[in-house]
Design a protein around this nucleic acid. Structure first.
Lengths: 371, 371
DNA sequence: GTGAAAGCGCTAACAG
DNA sequence: CTGTTAGCGCTTTCAC
């Protein structure tokens, strides 16, 4: 079964498409069309009604009938046709999930948590990555609508876009927003970024740090806005002067965090503490620190926003502000499940706390008397 | 819209379910049932046949008719009912994807690449994580079948399980296997792990390393098997004695790579080079090296299997054996698309190369004359 | 307890 | 070019 490496674009495969219309349905699956409930009923010698009743475990059935039908089912390897069920029941037992990008471990974890719960409840998940593009978000939303999802869980990056807002508001099925804010009357699960960030700033300030840098992305989403807001708020609260230029908003997509952080650290009065977005940005930040020959935490303290695997396993272990992804998944699916079951109470907004995990990357500010 | 943090299980939400059956359909979506093609035809003053024709852009239509129908469509905000189309067309325009865990960035990247292509072709993707459990894989496969996926892309972790094999073989729709081997006549896209690993070993041997450690997972999948095989083969090929105890197979799930690598490095004649699975294991490996006060590459050379973001941004940058995920996505979707379009030629097996990226983590073996 | 039949929304074959 | 109609497979009254 060894094949030569083939890196070519699929030109050779493409042509197969043309042939298709000129020949009978693929001989690769000559399995005559699968057994229908009618076949089952016939083989069992009962009516389709009865067959349906045993399939759906309705009570009104003689054990005898049940047996016959069940035998027919296994004999025919019968599986109910999902499309027909969806049409008839007006329910697809499918939930749509719109995320920026599963490649971001945060979303991947969230999706996994969500899937776990919803699968247990008998739903399958459609996953679509919007890659932060308005156009895609619109298209995905529209597709979810068209495909009659029973519910959707969404985290549109373009919260502020009027078209996106309109599209979300137009959704006709139960919807839950994931850590986003949109002016529509729908359920949402949010993280408490502001108090979380305040906690971090105050922890750092307590260690004597007076110049704290913040490295986030310029994505216009709620998490970023709130983190920055919390950052500002806490500076005010404790009367720490805030130099706005210490807030770095990295252009989304690319990750030139390295250069930006290097520049920040090269300033005459460099920050003595850095708060950086988890995973990639954190990684670049760590790299920039190490390249400049600075030590953690002696020269610079570091806090990660989000708690990627490597934060805990880095040397030294990096303190992190962790969001409860698993819990968010539980909560989000819970909310959605309730709606899909008919809950028609007012939209709920559930806020989940951020937890600060203090590890060994935060120390007293250099030259500070505290600590 | 501020809500108290709520960590409680959803007991309060649960009860809503009971109410449901006793009241009319949720007032939250009083949108009478969406417009059907019949409504459109009626409003446009044409027959459903004509309506269908313009909706499906068939040629036989007067511009006049077309206009009327199109107006009715926008007026009614009509969207074809997907379930009805699926039922009628025997096609769901949906593709199932079975992976171990999207939380693993490798799979996340693969999924994203796949989704990109398939979305362009008009398919949506159902994603299911098997978490390596046989039971789940069976269930997912069965669900894909029952739901009439037009095609599936799968990477079952339990390649060797007879039940899984049977379930895969029983799949009635086009299927492509992703870097797995199963004795079934289906398309597959594979990575060239053996030559890749051989390249790494020989690179290291060329630098004078004679004791190379390999840290992988004990997952019984093709990639792991092949890496180990390539490791052995190349040792033989260049006449390097291989101490089997230098091959560490980490139990899947947990990641105690740190201890295992520490132990390996604590041996009297420790390896002078380490080849480690990307991301988490690599991270632990790096940690263990740093904790023992060893330097890269002066004391230990390191190669990553897979090329996570941080490998390139680590200090020093870590050499990596990279698999072309994007290309795998392109190829896999290509293969599937062709089958779904009716291609009925013999199953293809496309092998993609592994690329070795030499960065700065590989140096001459300590005490070696080479380099 | 069971069967007959209506119809979910759509496409396609057929007649005009 | 357009209208009518027969199902796709299933659930669910409604009689019996």
């Amino acid at each position: 079964m060894r094949a030569a490496a083939c890196t070519a674009r699929a030109a050779p495969l493409e042509s197969a498409g043309l042939l298709r219309r000129m020949q009978s349905p693929s001989p690769r699956r000559p399995k005559a069309r699968p057994a229908s409930i009618r076949d089952v009923a016939e083989l069992a010698g009962v009516s389709v009604g009865s067959a349906s009743r045993v399939i759906n475990k309705v009570h009104n059935v003689t054990p005898e009938t049940r047996d016959k039908v069940e035998q027919a089912i296994t004999a025919l390897n019968y599986r109910p046709n999902h499309a027909a069920q969806s049409l008839r029941l007006r329910s697809s037992r499918t939930v749509g999930c719109l995320l920026s990008d599963v490649t971001n471990s945060l979303y991947a974890k969230l999706f996994r948590a969500l899937e776990e719960r919803l699968r247990d409840a008998g739903y399958m998940m459609l996953l679509a990555n919007s890659l932060n593009q308005v156009e895609r978000e619109l298209e995905i939303l529209s597709t979810f609508q068209a495909r009659g999802m029973d519910g959707v869980l969404i985290a549109p990056a373009n919260e502020g876009d009027p078209q996106v807002l309109a599209a979300v508001a137009a959704l006709e099925m139960p919807t839950v927003l994931l850590d986003r804010e949109l002016d529509a009357p729908i359920d949402r699960v949010l993280f408490d970024h502001i108090p979380g960030m305040q906690r971090v700033v105050s922890h750092l300030a307590g260690l004597g740090h007076r110049r704290i840098g913040l490295v986030v992305s310029d994505s216009p989403t709620r998490p970023m806005r709130h983190r920055i807001r919390g950052f500002r708020l806490q500076h005010e609260a404790i009367g720490l002067p805030l130099d706005e230029s210490r807030i770095i908003r990295l252009p989304t997509g690319t990750s030139p965090a390295f250069d930006a952080v290097s520049a920040l650290l090269a300033r005459p009065r460099r920050p003595t503490a850095l708060i950086a977005l988890g995973t990639n940005v954190l990684n670049d930040t760590l790299g920039a620190i190490s390249v400049r020959g600075l030590r953690i935490p002696q020269d610079v303290s570091v806090v990660s926003l989000g708690d990627p695997y490597f934060a805990a396993h880095h040397m030294p272990p990096i303190s992190a502000l962790r969001v409860a992804l698993q819990q968010a998944g539980d909560t989000g699916s819970q909310l959605l499940l309730a709606r899909m079951a008919g809950d028609d109470t007012a939209p709920r907004s559930i806020t989940l706390p951020c937890e600060f995990i203090d590890r060994q990357s935060c120390g007293p500010a250099p030259g500070s008397s505290r600590g």
